[in-house]
């Protein structure tokens, strides 16, 4: 099966700034691929290149068997997009939003009338078909945007930060929806800042920074390959004194503000040492994708 999206040596410059720098990416059909990276890493630009909205300075984009940007319009007939910012049509109702969006894909009113009930059902908006957009909650708008991305029954769905700004309930609903799409065999490409989201949903992950893929693999592989399996977070009085002593059981130590992150293979030995420092408090947990992400991209702010 050919890859739904293949980016090779993709490069995009704005003046002297290289935003995407020789990026390679190959999606596997029917899987969810997560694109992680700090702000300004080039995620959104990569998505715009992948959709053929902007032209690359170098490299190639193959989207659903079409070479872009020349064949972008043909390729986009089978792609759904959930943008970072909601851009639903405020002049229309929920139903009209889906119907009009279908027109952009050449779907007649009749075809859309056939598809809309299932889309509303998918979005959990069955009772809201005549509601105006302004009356919807943030979570409802997001779900409608997701349903709108499905009007053309796409093979590939591209989602740019689909759950940013949502409360946990709304986020879980979106996740359920995305799992259902994977169950239907659709390929997903999503960017996110929530490592938990990526860890739960994505089969494959690419961490990008400064316009390049720095690591790639399944969440589990990334955690196994790039980081010690356990983390002890230590905070409280006497942290500096303890840190000065250090612990030979910490393989790697990072201090962020008032908290020390001790990455270790042998957490029980670290915890035993901490018993001698009653002023210190700690949290022992398994390492996760966020630890990998912070190790690879650093703890500095990227605004």
């Amino acid at each position: 099966m050919t890859s739904p999206l293949k980016l090779s040596g993709l490069t995009k410059r704005y003046g002297d700034t290289v935003v995407v720098d020789g990026l390679d990416l190959e999606l596997k059909a029917g899987r969810c691929h997560g694109l992680l990276g700090p702000n300004g890493a080039g995620k959104t630009t990569t998505l715009r290149l992948a959709l053929g909205l902007i032209a690359a300075d170098a490299g190639t984009v193959d989207l659903l068997g079409q070479r872009l940007p020349a064949r972008a319009e043909v390729a986009r007939e089978r792609v759904g997009v959930v943008p970072q910012m909601d851009n639903l049509d405020p002049d229309f109702t929920v139903r009209e939003n889906l119907q009009i969006y279908g027109r952009y894909f050449g779907l007649s009113k009749r075809e859309m009338i056939g598809r809309i009930p299932a889309l509303l059902d998918f979005a959990g908006l069955a009772g809201k078909s005549e509601a105006l957009i302004a009356t919807l909650s943030g979570g409802m708008k997001r779900r409608l945007t997701l349903a709108r991305a499905l009007v053309n029954d796409p093979d590939l769905v591209i989602l740019d930060e689909p759950t940013t700004g949502l409360d946990p309930q709304a986020r879980h609903l979106i996740w359920q929806g995305l799992r259902r799409l994977m169950g239907q065999g659709k390929t997903l490409l999503l960017t996110t800042h929530f490592m938990e989201e990526a860890e739960r949903l994505c089969d494959d992950i690419s961490v990008i920074d400064q316009g390049r893929v720095i690591v790639q693999g399944s969440p589990r592989e990334l955690i196994q390959t790039h980081i010690e399996p356990h983390v002890v977070e230590i905070y409280g009085d006497g942290l500096n004194e303890w840190q000065a002593c250090g612990s030979r059981h910490c393989h790697r130590c990072e201090q962020a503000g008032e908290t020390l992150f001790c990455y270790t293979q042998t957490p029980s030995k670290v915890v035993a040492e901490l018993a001698a420092h009653p002023g210190l408090r700690y949290l022992h947990r398994p390492a996760n994708l966020e630890d990998v992400f912070l190790k690879l991209t650093g703890r500095d702010l990227r605004d």
Binding site: L51, L53, E73, R76, V79, P83, N87, Y104, F105, G106
Partner: peptide, 12 residues
Amino acid sequence: QKTWEAILNTPL
């Protein structure tokens, strides 16, 4: 409203 941007994600 970013209506044009929404449309540009379609084949148009």
